[in-house]
């Protein structure tokens, strides 16, 4: 399983979204998350995938797809 699949599975497990929703969502808010939830998500992601997220970059990450691209890029 590549990192993108793992991240999709991680988001799906955490929030109950389908793969299609993760791919197509226009924003996290459209899927029900508030902007602060990202901080909680990032903390867990850092622990789980051993990456370090620059919180400043989070202002640009507004969709699940962008989130996956960002973490996979790390």
């Amino acid at each position: 399983m590549d990192i993108r699949e793992k991240l999709t599975g991680f988001l799906s497990e955490r929030y109950g979204w389908t793969d299609e929703e993760i791919k197509e969502a226009e924003s996290f808010e459209a899927l029900g998350l508030d902007s602060l939830s990202l901080y909680s998500l990032v903390t867990e992601c850092e622990e789980k995938f051993g990456v370090k997220v620059d919180t400043d970059d989070m202002t640009e990450i507004d969709t699940p797809e962008k989130f996956i691209n960002y973490i996979a890029g790390k």
């Binding site: 799906s12 497990e13 955490r14 929030y15 109950g16 979204w17 808010e29 029900g32 998350l33 508030d34």
Partner: peptide, 16 residues
């Protein structure tokens, strides 16, 4: 599953 719970909660409560 936790997914089912999340979906239900999202429909009924504020996102925060």
């Amino acid at each position: 599953s936790t997914n089912d719970i999340n979906r239900y909660v999202f429909q009924h409560l504020a996102n925060y």
